[in-house]
């Protein structure tokens, strides 16, 4: 199946220094890749690296919570790269706060980034996937989507929402040939921001972005007689 899609298109929505960049690099091995984020710096840097390595990568600035911007981004990707085979929705941020520490704005914005953005992007890419009868939509999940901590007053409900959306999409779209995967990243990801918060963390306590990206790649290429919907990944030492 990898060969079939080798000339296809993958869109990674939500590209920062950590997982998003690793996902874009991983999928660039077999796809033309669009890197989508609100700010330009990281997507331009990573797209440049991919191009320098012989891949095809287009950085696209777009806010995943604003429908008009998503429509425009989607049009640009279709025009410059072609129809989309794989949508990787990695949008989101992780505010930390208990109920009384979380403002209504933070709560709503977090839900918009995680759940609403995935909904809007799926609405863009699904019609063409349906007409072909194939495609993959892969969504980044988190522990908080299964078992949120008290300080995940905004993040937990947002992750529950996107996980619910993923299950709806899977039951709707699997029989029509579109694979929907939800990757529950059950641990801290090794990236600069997290290292700042957890300076004492050892390498083995954290998930490598490239290893998570391998899991996404694997899901995107499963034989359709044996599809996985929800996949949990965690470091070997992680409690669960």
């Amino acid at each position: 199946m990898a060969a079939e899609r080798a000339k296809g298109v993958t869109v990674v929505v939500g590209v920062g220094e950590g997982l998003g960049a690793a996902l874009a690099r991983r999928f660039a091995a077999g796809y033309r890749v669009a890197l989508v984020a609100r700010s330009a710096d990281v997507i331009e840097k990573v797209a440049g690296e991919i191009r320098a390595g012989g891949g095809v990568a287009v950085p696209i600035q777009s806010d995943a919570t604003v429908e008009a911007q998503i429509v425009a981004a989607h049009e640009r990707i279709r025009g410059e790269l072609g129809p989309i085979d794989v949508l990787v929705y990695n949008g989101g941020r992780r505010p930390i706060g208990r109920l009384l520490e979380t403002t209504p704005d933070v709560f709503e914005d977090t839900w918009r980034l995680h759940a609403f953005g995935a909904f809007l992007w799926a609405r863009q890419v699904v019609p063409e996937m349906l007409s072909r009868g194939s495609g993959a939509i892969l969504i980044t999940g988190a522990t908080a989507g299964v078992r949120p901590w008290p300080n995940s007053a905004a993040f937990g409900p947002a992750k529950f929402a996107v996980r619910g959306l993923a299950q709806v999409l899977a039951r709707d779209l699997h029989p029509q040939g579109i694979h929907v995967g939800y990757v529950n990243v059950d641990g801290g990801i090794d990236m600069p921001l997290l290292r700042q918060f957890l300076p004492q963390a050892k390498d083995e306590d954290l998930l490598k972005p490239s290893a998570i990206a391998d899991a996404f790649w694997f899901l995107a290429h499963q034989d359709r007689s044996a599809w996985t919907h929800e996949l949990d990944v965690r470091p070997f030492k992680e409690k669960f």
Partner: peptide, 13 residues
């Protein structure tokens, strides 16, 4: 081992 799965569900599309 930085990204192990425990539960892995498989079903036809």
């Amino acid at each position: 081992r930085s990204a192990w799965s425990f539960n892995v569900e498989l079903r036809p599309f």
